[in-house]
């Protein structure tokens, strides 16, 4: 399946958000995920299934003023 992840095309076998985070080797602590402009609550990482052409954003906190 092909998705747009953080603005870049990506091919993935991940079924849901939790799979995708694991595939990327990310820790879920202090991350947030947006799917097609909607925030995905952490409680739904296992229940929301990825679909072809989904636009996913994964963000974290960095230094800023």
């Amino acid at each position: 399946m092909n998705i747009l992840l953080n603005g870049e095309a990506r091919s993935t076998t991940a079924l849901h958000i939790a799979d995708l985070i694991a595939e990327l080797g990310l820790e879920t602590r202090m991350l947030a995920v947006e799917r097609n402009l909607e925030v995905v609550p952490k409680s739904e990482y296992l229940t929301i299934h990825l679909k072809e052409s989904d636009r996913i954003e994964i963000v974290h906190m960095i230094g800023g003023g």
């Binding site: 953080n6 990327l24 080797g25 990310l26 991350l31 963000v59 974290h60 230094g63 800023g64």
Partner: peptide, 18 residues
């Protein structure tokens, strides 16, 4: 204050501000 930015997916496991 902190800023919100895309995770760099090629640098998983890197140190974070927090």
């Amino acid at each position: 204050t902190v800023a919100v930015r895309r995770v760099n997916i090629t640098e998983a496991g890197k140190e974070n501000l927090l």
